[in-house]
């Protein structure tokens, strides 16, 4: 691709570069996401969180499921895994348990994580598995053409609900808290600074952490519901969002056009999987217990 840069009325330092570039496989650009889609915006926030957290990028692995957000793994210049639909979390569980020094981030969409992958989500949260789960919630199945998801709000029109959704939707932050997540936050793609800060926090926090990011899908969700384009959605987020840190997650359900409660809702310390494993085995087996050394040393 011809990477033309505009004639600019001032000098750009020769060593200037886009801060996201070291984190991305630039040889794979342009990405597949539509104009006005917010997934790329969340990736910006993630890369800045990685930068600010001073994480050793060789020790960060990213695991995605299937769908538009599932493609994030393929663009991140990290050890990256594009798994099967809904199974990013159990794959990540195996990866983390085998190699605990890895920081394992699960980056996927709402349909992937909460419909086909819903069971895995609640169990990983129950175990307080040390995974950082970032859910880009565009309220629909975008990759397949905008069908109803378990997050699609009532009255919305979708490809499989042509007369309007009537099933109640999941409130993801309440679900995550109830299942045992150590950290639960929600932002929108309008809240880039706050989102980057939240992502940085979870990179530094132990245990199962969950961030929901509302993101526009202008091609399939907003268009079908006459809600404008990506920019209109961003303006809607700006106008409809209310920051309420610590709000009871039960009060944070989303509706088609109502208030969007954003903020950090849960930040608690629960013992993690390894802590509990080691405590139980030491109690039962005493000196006979050998701490896991799963990575095959000489093979």
């Amino acid at each position: 691709m011809n990477e033309t840069t505009l004639e600019v009325p001032y000098e750009i330092p020769v060593d200037a570069h886009n801060p996201v570039e070291p984190f991305l496989r630039m040889d794979r650009m342009p990405h597949i996401w539509c104009p006005g889609c917010g997934i790329g915006t969340t990736v910006n926030c993630f890369t800045r969180a990685l930068l600010d957290s001073k994480a050793d990028l060789d020790k960060v692995a990213i695991v995605s499921g299937i769908g538009c957000t599932g493609r994030v793994a393929g663009y991140a210049s990290l050890d990256s895994f594009h798994t099967t639909h809904g199974r990013a979390i159990p794959f990540a569980t195996g990866l983390k348990l085998a190699n605990p020094e890895l920081q394992v981030v699960v980056y996927s969409g709402d349909g992937d994580l909460f419909a086909i992958g819903g069971n895995h989500f609640i169990h990983a949260a129950r175990r307080n598995m040390d995974l950082k789960v970032i859910c880009v919630n565009n309220l629909t199945y975008a990759m397949t053409g905008g069908q109803t998801a378990p997050t699609t709000p009532s009255h919305v029109i979708s490809a499989t609900s042509p007369y309007g959704v009537f099933e109640p939707a999941f409130n993801l932050v309440a679900l995550a808290e109830a299942a045992g997540a150590s950290y639960v936050a929600r932002w929108t793609t309008y809240h880039v600074k706050q989102l980057a800060r939240s992502m940085e926090e979870v990179l530094k926090k132990k245990g199962f952490c969950f961030i929901e990011v509302l993101s526009p899908c202008p091609t399939l969700y907003q268009r079908r519901n006459k809600m404008g384009d990506g920019l209109d959605t961003m303006k809607f987020y700006k106008q409809a969002s209310k920051v309420r840190h610590g709000a009871p997650t039960s009060e944070c359900a989303l509706t088609k056009s109502g208030e969007i409660v954003v903020g950090k809702f849960v930040d608690r310390d629960r013992p993690g999987y390894f802590e509990l494993l080691n405590a139980q085995m030491t109690e039962t087996l005493g000196e006979r217990y050998a701490e896991p050394e799963v990575v095959c040393g000489n093979c």
Binding site: V63, D79, F81, T83, T84, G86, R87, P90, F91, A92, T93, G94, L95, K96, L97, A98, N99, L102, N119, H120, H123, V294, V295, C296, C299
Partner: peptide
């Protein structure tokens, strides 16, 4: 489903699984 993909995560982490 989870068991059969968790082992593959472990393999890419360096385990025999």
């Amino acid at each position: 489903l989870a068991a059969s993909i968790a082992i593959q995560g472990a393999v890419w982490g360096g385990a025999k699984a």
